[in-house]
Amino acid sequence: MSKGPKEAGMTLIVKTITRLTVGLILLYGIYIVTHGHLTPGGGFAGGVIIALSFIHLTLAFGKEVALKKLSKEGTSILDSLGALIFLAIAILGFTGGYFFLNFINKGVPFRLLSAGIIPLCNIAIALKVGAGLFAIFMGLVFLKILDKDKK
């Protein structure tokens, strides 16, 4: 099957399935992140799943499509932003006297809105991990492409 430059990526079957599932994968990642303090999972696992949804997109459609959704600079910014949010939460703990103090009302256990700063930390970690992992993947892929061009 000949492919034009615009039709980079895999076959029609893969593309169709991907179109259906990518959103679900992203949503599942977000679910894992937001329920990190209740069920297994959390910022890291959820972040990996979020990154996987973008990597999935890259594999199926080629890097142009994925980079249109989330550019390389965008990942870098999100990456730093995640870390800064985490640090800001930690520093805000000083309001109660301690670095990393859990300063928000802890609420009732086993509710979605409970456990003080932990869900916020999870979100920050997810941003960091998701963007970081996607950036690592893209970095390695780009390096390889650059290598091929030189040959």
């Binding site: 910014i77 730093s80 870390a83 800064l84 640090l87 930690a90």
Partner: peptide, 23 residues
């Protein structure tokens, strides 16, 4: 408020701010 956490917090904040805005 103690200065102990600042030894880690200041360089980390500096690093991420640099990577966010340095470009």
């Amino acid at each position: 408020m103690s200065i102990l956490p600042l030894f880690v917090a200041i360089p980390l904040a500096g690093a991420f701010l640099t990577s966010l805005l340095g470009r």
